[in-house]
Structures are given as structure tokens and as C-alpha cells.
Design a protein around this nucleic acid. Sequence first.
DNA 1: CTTAGAAAGATTGGATCCAATATACAATGT
DNA 2: ACATTGTATATTGGATCCAATCTTTCTAAG
Lengths: 221, 221
Amino acid sequence: MKLDAVDVRQAASAADIVYEALRKAIIEGALAEGENLRQDQIAQMFNTSRIPVREALSRLEQHGLITTQRYKGAVVAGLSIEEIEEIFEFRALLEAEVIRLAVPNLDRKTLDLARRHCDEFGKESDSAKWGETNRNFHYSLYEAARRPYYLQIVRASLDRIDRYLRAQLTLTDGMKRAAREHEAIFEACTKGDADLASALTRDHILDAGRSLVVFLREQRG
Amino acid sequence: MKLDAVDVRQAASAADIVYEALRKAIIEGALAEGENLRQDQIAQMFNTSRIPVREALSRLEQHGLITTQRYKGAVVAGLSIEEIEEIFEFRALLEAEVIRLAVPNLDRKTLDLARRHCDEFGKESDSAKWGETNRNFHYSLYEAARRPYYLQIVRASLDRIDRYLRAQLTLTDGMKRAAREHEAIFEACTKGDADLASALTRDHILDAGRSLVVFLREQRG
DNA sequence: CTTAGAAAGATTGGATCCAATATACAATGT
DNA sequence: ACATTGTATATTGGATCCAATCTTTCTAAG
């Protein structure tokens, strides 16, 4: 007997579905910062009651993606430029370390996968897909670090600033530069040079942060 | 008209209260790992319904303090030795950086506060109070880094392993060594030597992690 | 005696209802 | 006209009820 066994117990609850959908919408910028999130309205969109919606909102707040006020409701969280700078600095520290830990564990298969993700960058120009490819590329390498806790934090950090990054990339030539930097990081990984990969990753993130801050200062005045 | 105005809107919801109480109980080890958390039972303890309890449990799960299975309930999360090692390694990286960023901003007032916390270590032998003092000491210095996002992650990381640390400290002479190391870190801070403070903090955390792992390997066999 | 299967009880997930609070707007007095 | 107060509506927080699922127990056949 052969079949694609699925663990039924992992079936998603209504709250899980709402949470993931809202998370995705916020990360991709489909929901603008400051936008109101009415429990009733969301419940109707998902054909459910407000209970799972409230659970989802509570989780989103824990992750800093929304802010809530008692009896007033939830709004999509916005980040100040200072907060954005802090998160980029944090990511630089963390991801530089993760790639350093990953390099010694990289095998042929993982590198091939990363290579394919890297090649995708030339093709995509849509910001949602670009963001997806960006995550795939970095995470395919990061996985080799075998540090689930680190990766969880890395993910959460990227979640917070992804929408700003995407908005900027579509409006500037940041995508081309990012593609070149990815190429260099990949190169260092194939050579097994952990220190170089780490330094390049650090610069890659700090550069992206700097251009984003410049962009936002113009935009916000 | 003069009165002590209080922002009423910050009043805690039932879910907030339950969340904080359970978080504290788990961190302090009052709830053993693997212990079942029945919604009904908790609701009765807090004289409330299951709704706020479910919200609290959902938040706790996001922070990794409990694990839940659909229709089966929640249990206090346990960490494998590998997971504990990873979190100590992570904390070493992060807190070493935080203290480095903090040192240039330390002023007389902050140092005095840290000094007082440091002096508390000699007095306390109760593990709950010791843990509290430990947090107070480190955080009083960390605050000067002015990196709220970093601190949020630092807090969450400590939350996960605090109960193991406390259990070990009461059963070994780890408290004395920790006190000496705190003294040294404080010394480096007063001198304004950021690199030294960073290195000492890193070692302080890695040492604590190593002794804890040794302790747990014995205990768990 | 063991074990598969069914029934009963326990527990969680979700829906509906009620209470507490906020917001918008009308009414009233100066 | 303006500010203040009262009221009506909208929205959230919490309680209670029902459905879905798990766990345990009981039964009966091998």
C-alpha cells in the first residue's frame, strides 16, 4: 500500500488559517500600516465567527505585526525609521552568524537548490515573488546551520520589515544590486569560506537597510 | 484640580492576566514540563471563562512556552539538551552585542542601580528571587543599549531556559560563580571597556550553559 | 484471557449571546 | 455660535451553548 500520508492532527484550525492569511497580507504590504482590522469584517471574509479571529489577532500582536487597544481594536503596526534601523542591525548580526554556522554543513544538494533559487532573481520583477525568492535563497542556505531557534527569530525579524523592503525594491534598482550580492554570497559558500560568506551577508543586510532608510526619509519627509 | 491620573486604557484584560500568570509559573518552574493545562481548570482558578484562557494559551504557544495539539490540549513545553545548548549559544551572541552597545551609554545613575542589584546576589538564596535579581542586574545595563527590539528577543530567550537555570543553580554552587562573573562584568562597565564587558558576558553565558548541560546530562541520564 | 469494537465521558474548537466601552452625533444651555 | 452633556450606534471582551474529537471504559467474540 502506497499513499501520501498526511498527519491529520496537524490540520489547521480556523484561527491558524486566519492568522496565516493576515500575516501574509501584512508582510506583503497588502494591508497598509495603520489600517483598521475589524473582527466582524474579518470573520465574515473567512466565513467564521469572531472567536478564531480574536485568537489570530492576539498572535499577530505577540509578533509585533499589529497593535491593539482594549475596546478600540487592532491596526496594522507601523515602524518608525529608528525601529527599522534597529531591526536591520539585528538581522545583520544574526544572519551573519547563521551563515557562518551553515557553511561547514553545506552539501552538494543544498548548494544546487540555492543555485536554482539564485537564478530565479533575474526573472522575477514582481515584488511578492521577488520577496519569496529572496527568502527561499537565504533560508535554503541557513537551514544547513541546523539552528531551529535562530531561524525562528530570523524569520520573525524579516517578517517585520519585509513590506518596507519590497516597496523600496520595486521603486529603485535595489533588486539588481541584491542579485549581485547574492551571487557573491553563494560564491563564498561554494568555496567553503565561512568568514567571507558571513561578512558578505552582514554587508548585504546593512546595505539594504541603509538604502531603505534613505528611501524612507525621502518618502516620509 | 490635582489628582494622580492613571491611564485607564492600559487596564489588563482577563487574557493578559492569565497569560502573565502562566508565563511566570512556567518560567519559575512552578509548572513542570509536560504538565497538562486544562482550559476549564485554569478558567476556574481565575474565575473566568475559557475564552480568555484560550487566548492566553495561544500566546504562550507563540512564545514556545507550551505546545498544543488540536483537540488534545496544551502541555508545558520541554526542551531537549540540544535545544537548550542552542539557546545559550544564541544568548551569548546576542547579549554580548547588547552589552557592547550599552557601555558607551552608561551613566552614573544606571551604574548605581546595577551596583545595587549586584549587591543583592550575596543575600538571596531563594531561586525565584535570585532569578529576579539576575534579570534586574543584566537588564539594568542592557537598557542603556537603547535597542528595544534586541531586548525583547533577549527576554524571550531567557524565558525559555530560565527554569532549567534556576533548578540547577539551587542544587550546585553556580550562584557563587555567577556572582563573581557579575562583579567582573560590572567592573568592565564602570571602566567603559565595551569589548571586555562583551567578552565577559559571552563567557558568563556560555559557562552557565555548559554547567547546565553537564547537570542535565546527569539528571536525565 | 485477550482484544476489537462500541458506547460514554471528557475536552477542545467554534458560534451565539450579553456586557462593557468607545465613537459619533444630537440636544441643551449659555 | 460654542461648549457640554446625553444618547444612539458600533465595536470589543467575555460567558454560555453546541459540535467535533479524543480518551476511557465496557462489552462481547475469538
